[in-house]
Structure formats: C-alpha cells, structure tokens
Design a protein around this nucleic acid. Structure first.
Length: 208
DNA sequence: TGCCAGGCCCTCTTTAGGGCCTT
C-alpha cells in the first residue's frame, strides 16, 4: 500500500555498475542508499548484486568490487526488488542523477516495477551554488567543502553517505543565501533547473 | 571484430561542437 511519507524525508542513492550505459547492456553491481530526515540518517541500504556476467578489470580496479565478490552476491533481480520497496514513496537524490536514474529505471523496468519519487541532482545544484571550486566531481566537492568521509570512494554506500552530507550542505547554503528557515525538496529541485543567471532573482523571490 | 552513453551547459551558439560528470 502506498504510504505518504514526510516531504522532508529523502533517499540519497548511488549505483556501482559494469559501465556507463544500460542501453549498451551494462548492469548494476552495487546499490547504496541512505534515508535522511531532518538532516539525520535514519536508515540505510547496501547490497552487492550479481549481474550475470564478469565485470571488466577496469571496473574491478575502479570500484574495488571483484568478480569473486560478485560470485556469491544475490541477483540484480532479487536486490532491486527489495530496493524498490525501500525507496517507495520517497524523493530521491544522486550525484549526476541522470546516470543513477537511467540504471534505476533500467533495473526496475526489467522487474516490471516502478517508483513514485522525483530525482534531484546534487551535481547540478553544486554547479550553481559552488562556482569557484576546481570541478564538481563528488570527491572534489567533499575535499573542497571539508565534508566528513572515511576515505572510501567509488563504493555505493560510502558515495551515498558523502552525497547525503553534500545535500545537507547545499540546503544550508540556500538557507544562508535566502535567510529561509527551511528549504524544501521542491525548492531544491527548482533551483537545480534554474539557469545560473536567474538564481539571484529566484533567491530574492524566495527571501521575500 | 570493433564499435559503443546521455544530459547539462558554455560559447568563438541556436543550421554546432565539445567539456563535464557518472561507471
């Protein structure tokens, strides 16, 4: 049964995959996600999954996820079915969300399952709110903004946790620039789609 | 066998090209 969740409760997710494109046959090999409410992590999800074929040595090196680790992992089908339950009814956040959304759509599509949340991209927001950083890679933003991390990168849960902290920092930045007490997911979504030139006007409108 | 993504965003733009970001 569909449950309406508090609007300020969101799920930050990250996929590790066999490559860049589900349209080219690439599959998910790990999903990590954290559920945050009122700025606090209240739940998490992390699971390796077996794509049914061997991953490249590049992916083994990039993620640290080896074929041996995936041999004993449950199937994408089993993991993504459980993950579909986890995210149901929540809005979603990811760094370069178009990438994670493509894989989520592809994996759930193979199961005949859907989700009803909206995606917002932390990278698009960071490009708008932090224009002076060297680039907008997750690792660079974590370093430049002194975001807490345990030194693990390119693993799903670790990246989801860092993206969650980045999301909270982005909300704080909007609060600072608008003097708003609270900033909703919908405001962040709108901001992520507003051109840089129009952001001062949007902030002025929000602060009014 | 060898090939291969795609959306955003800037600019020397819009009849286009290329860098960024994700694995």
């Amino acid at each position: 049964m569909y449950t309406k969740h508090p609007a300020d409760t969101v799920i930050v997710l990250d996929f590790e995959t066999t490559g860049l494109s589900p349209n080219m046959g690439d599959r998910a090999i790990e999903i990590g996600a954290v559920k945050i409410q009122n700025g606090i992590v209240i739940d998490q999800f992390q699971q390796l999954m077996n794509p049914g074929f061997r991953v490249s040595s590049f992916i083994e090196g990039y993620t640290g996820i080896t074929n041996k680790m995936l041999d004993s992992a449950p199937s994408c089908h089993a993991v993504m079915d459980e993950f579909a339950d986890f995210i149901q009814g929540y809005n979603l956040i990811a760094h370069n969300a178009s990438f994670d959304q493509r894989f989520l759509d592809a994996e759930l599509g193979m199961l005949g399952r859907q989700y009803n949340g909206s995606f917002v991209c932390s990278m698009l927001l960071a490009r708008r709110l932090y224009q002076d950083v060297p680039n907008h890679k997750l690792g660079t933003l974590v370093s430049e903004l002194d975001i807490a991390n345990n030194g693990t990168f390119h693993r799903a849960l670790a990246d989801a946790e860092m993206t969650a902290r980045l999301w909270l920092r982005l909300i704080d930045e909007v609060k600072t620039q608008t003097n708003l007490q609270t900033v909703s997911f919908d405001v962040m979504r709108k901001l992520s789609k507003t051109s840089k030139a129009s952001i001062p006007a949007l902030f002025k409108k929000l602060a009014a």
